[in-house]
Structure formats: C-alpha cells, structure tokens
Design a protein around this nucleic acid. Structure first.
Lengths: 156, 156
DNA sequence: GTGGTTTTGCAACATAGTAGCATTTGTGCC
DNA sequence: GGCACAAATGCTACTATGTTGCAAAACCAC
C-alpha cells in the first residue's frame, strides 16, 4: 500500500530547478503547479491500477495533504481534460482514474470481478473497426475485460 | 398526480392462454408475472437501445403504470440477475439496461458521444483472448465503441 | 513584495442507488 | 371461487457520488 513517509514533496519553492515527472506534465499542459495536482498526479503515476476518487483522496490524506472533496473532483477533471489522465466507468457507480501512459485512448482495461481492481493493459489493442453497421462513425473503442486477476485467481 | 384511467391492462387473469413474450420470459426464469415486470420487460424488448432507469420509469408512467423508484431498481436487478437483461455503465454515472437478446455476455455496444444513445451491436464479437498477461483469467469481454450514430453523424 | 488570475475550500444542492419493513399481490392448492 | 404463504411492492429514510456558486487563498509574472 501507500507509505506515509511524509517526505515533503513540496519542492515548488525549492532553490533547485529539479522538476518531478508530475510537475513537468502539469506545466506542459499550461496549468499551475499546485500541491494537490502534483500529489494526485504522483499517486496516479505510482499506481499500477486505476483508482477511484475515494482511493485517491485517502492516499492524499495519508500523505498529510489537506484537501477538499470538490477540489479533488476538479483536479481529476482537469487532468482528464488535459489528456494526462483518463476516466472510466466501472460496474459500480464510481468512476476510476488512471494516467494515460500510452496513446490517447487506445488501451484496454482489465476488471477483476472479485476484488474490483482495474488495471490498464497497455499491450492490448482491440481488433475492431470491423463490420460496424452503416452510418456509424467510430471515434475510439473501449475494451474492458472481466475475470480474475492473478492474485484472486490463485486463491480459487 | 397520476391519472386514474385504470385501463385494466391486467391480462394475467384473462381466459385466453395468450402469453406475451415478456410473460414467457419471466415465467421461464421462475419469477412471478407482475404488472411492473411485464411492463418493464416489454419496454426493454421494444427499445432498440439501452435505457436508463430514469427513461424506463418515464415510459412506465406514460403507460399509466404506477410504480416506485425502488421497485424499478429491484425489477431491473432481478432481470439482470436472471440473465434476461444486461446492465452496463456509461460515461455518465447512470447505468443503462437492455435485453440480452443474443448470447449471455458476448456483444458490443455503441455509445454515441453526441446524443448519448447506446445501442447493442449483436453482430460484433471482439477478437480478444489474445496476449493477456500471465495469471489473468478472462471471463468475458465488454467492448464499447464511441463515436457518432447515424442520426448525429448526418448532421455533422 | 505586489497584483491579477487560477485554484482551493466551504456549504449547499443534485442525482443515483440501497436498506428495512409493513402492506399488497401472485400463485399453488383445496 | 376462496385460502395461505411467499414473493414483490411501496414507503420512508439513508448512503454514495458528483456538481454549483462564491469568497478566500495560493500560484506565478513582474
């Protein structure tokens, strides 16, 4: 899980010009580098799976970063809008967020039906664009695979 | 308030042995044939797209069928549990429901990003089961295509 | 440091879905 | 047809998720 080392990631005022990956991404999008944005993005970058708003909020709290529920929603929305993160709807009614590491919208997700975890499968590209009925214009395809993740599969 | 036309759509007690498709489906699942279930299922059968809980409730009201929000949730849940209908999460936070006409879980959906409509594409089968990382067990694949439906595409 | 704009935090609201329980309604049986 | 019993409904209240408006604070350029 996430450590709570409290390692004072607030280096926006430091004399070093050292920029973390998160900070670079944010400035590249023309946004201001704020405590919340950096922390949220770092959490997403460090995570190997999609996280819900709630999970991210919890991680923020563990790092001692004070934040508001609404701010987190807006931060996540901004990240999605900027193309840095992507949003996806699961079977439960909570949306999950992850960093869009590869192409803009071209990767599949795996949803574990037992533990509810969602991971990104970068290597998979759905072979669609096939027999779509006439008149439909395809923008992007979203592929969600359901089943058991390695952890849950072993237990069975 | 609700009209009191009370047009007695109750044909479960009629002398005919005429059973609608909806009624047959319900009894086949070992469920009771109730006003709400028959009406909901007929609405879903008649629809050429997935409907939200809200849209179904509206359709029920238009037919003068008194119902409760909670009952509708439970009815839909029962239909999904019985395998008669299927549930899918869209980009908005409302779940959509449709009848599972073909196989149990093996068809794709098309989501129109302009009008929000969701239709079932029975003919499409995602060609997955490919390079899934080791340890993952695949149960089913859910493919959602995003783009413009024929109606919205023409306008562009 | 100062000023101006972006973000945040707060409170209140809105929507989607769930839980418990008393009442009603289908259904099998006589 | 009438009865009994379980399933389904309807009601109220509640939780969870997400949104809006606005004043205060933080960020960044100068």
């Amino acid at each position: 899980m996430l450590q709570n080392h409290l390692q004072l990631t607030c280096n926006t005022m430091s004399t070093h010009t050292h920029l973390s990956a998160a900070e670079s991404l944010i400035t590249a999008q023309g946004g201001r580098v704020t405590r919340t944005r950096v922390a949220v993005l770092e959490i997403l970058l460090a995570a190997d799976q999609s996280l819900t708003h709630d999970e991210i909020g919890l991680a923020l709290a563990e790092q001692g970063i004070k934040h508001d529920r609404v701010t987190l929603y807006r931060t996540l929305d901004w990240l999605v809008e900027s193309g840095v993160a992507h949003k996806m709807a699961g079977d439960d009614r909570a949306r999950r967020f992850g960093v869009a590491a590869s192409g803009p919208h071209e990767h599949a997700h795996f949803h574990c039906d037992r533990c509810g975890k969602v991971v990104c499968l970068e290597g998979l590209q759905p072979a669609v664009a096939v027999n779509l009925p006439g008149g439909y214009q395809l923008d992007r395809a979203e592929l969600v695979l359901h089943g058991a993740c390695p952890t849950c599969g072993k237990g069975a």
